[in-house]
């Protein structure tokens, strides 16, 4: 790490320390020595909250089909026993899931994890979101049905993710993009925000497995493979959106010329000379590599070829 960057980070940390007050956040989960009071009492005061919550899948499950003793406590299964809160109705006497909660996010999360553990949440601990101190309630609002799925804080997963990932919102609006803003794909089609075995939180073992789950025609394996394709789709493509066609990371033919420089011989290929405006369709020496599909005007099977005469992806 560069010394200047490290110094900046250290200074920021010190500044934070100077500005911040010691926290009185509680880091232990509430004990069960407090009495449960029952949801009827909760709803007698929190009528508006209850009216929204009653329409959620949690309420429908806890109300009609509680499978455990915990679920039978409905409101108190998430917020903890309400015995103290009845006498002192503040956020200090109940587990709240908001910014003014007296509990640390890890405790808030532990309340959710009483039920929501394993499955898609197997790798939550140690995941990027967990290490960044996110609480479940940063993305979810179980108290109301704002989204069709997953009790999100906003109307869908994409809008929820864009709150912290605005760069991706800009990417999806670029010239070539995955059809997310058109409603045809969602962030959660590719990512598991709760954690996975990959750094970008992918819902697969690696990038190619994920991409070829929809683009299976590119999976192969082919008899003639293109090494960067076999390695990772991201060698050539951006995953969200690009200023260039086909979500390419840069313009053709430069993308290919970042790896290839064959010598000038029919056996070995055509040389990687610099193409200029003269090589456009309107120039003095039009060259396919600068027009239309670029190198793919001939090397059309660039993801791999299963044709016996396709080692250079012409067939």
């Amino acid at each position: 790490m560069g010394s200047s960057q490290g110094t900046l980070l250290l200074l920021f940390a010190l500044a934070l320390g100077a500005c911040a007050q010691p926290s009185d956040e509680r880091t232990d989960a509430p004990g069960r020595d407090v009495a449960y009071v029952g949801d009827a009492l909760c709803k007698s005061c929190h009528s508006v909250e209850a009216s929204h919550w009653d329409r959620t899948v949690h309420a429908r499950a806890f109300g009609a089909n509680p499978r455990t003793e915990l679920e039978q406590h409905t409101c108190e299964s998430c917020h903890g026993p309400g015995g103290k809160h009845v006498g002192e109705p503040t956020s200090a006497t109940i587990v709240a899931f908001t910014r003014d909660s007296s509990y640390a996010p890890e405790v808030m999360n532990s309340m959710c994890q009483q039920c929501h553990r394993g499955g898609a949440l197997m790798y939550w601990i140690g995941s990027t979101h967990e290490l960044r101190g996110l609480a479940c309630s940063d993305c979810h609002n179980p108290m109301a049905q704002s989204s069709a799925e997953s009790l999100l804080r906003k109307e869908n997963a994409n809008q929820t993710c864009f709150t912290c990932h605005p760069q991706q919102r800009a990417d999806f609006a670029k010239r070539s993009h995955m059809p997310l803003l058109e409603g045809k794909i969602s962030c959660t089609d590719c990512h598991n925000p709760h954690g996975s075995t990959t750094n970008p939180l992918l819902k697969a073992d690696d990038v190619n497995q994920l991409c070829t789950s929809c683009h299976a025609e590119k999976r192969g394996p082919f008899i003639w493979e293109h090494a960067p394709v076999r390695e990772s789709c991201l060698n050539c493509h951006k995953p969200h959106g690009s200023n260039h066609e086909k979500l390419l990371v840069t313009a053709l033919p430069l993308l290919c010329q970042e790896c290839h420089s064959p010598i000038d011989n029919p056996n070995f290929g055509h040389p990687a000379g610099l193409l200029t405006a003269q090589n456009m369709a309107t120039g003095g020496a039009p060259d396919d590599r600068l027009m239309n599909r670029g190198c793919l005007n001939c090397h059309s099977q660039i993801h791999g070829s299963n044709h016996p005469s396709g080692p250079k992806f012409h067939r």
């Binding site: 898609a120 799925e149 109307e155 869908n156 409603g183």
Partner: peptide, 17 residues
């Protein structure tokens, strides 16, 4: 695999539908 992802929509109803 992991549970239900966001369901599909269209451009007139990108949100909750």
């Amino acid at each position: 695999l992991p549970a239900f992802a966001d369901p599909p929509r269209d451009s007139l109803h990108p949100g909750d539908a």
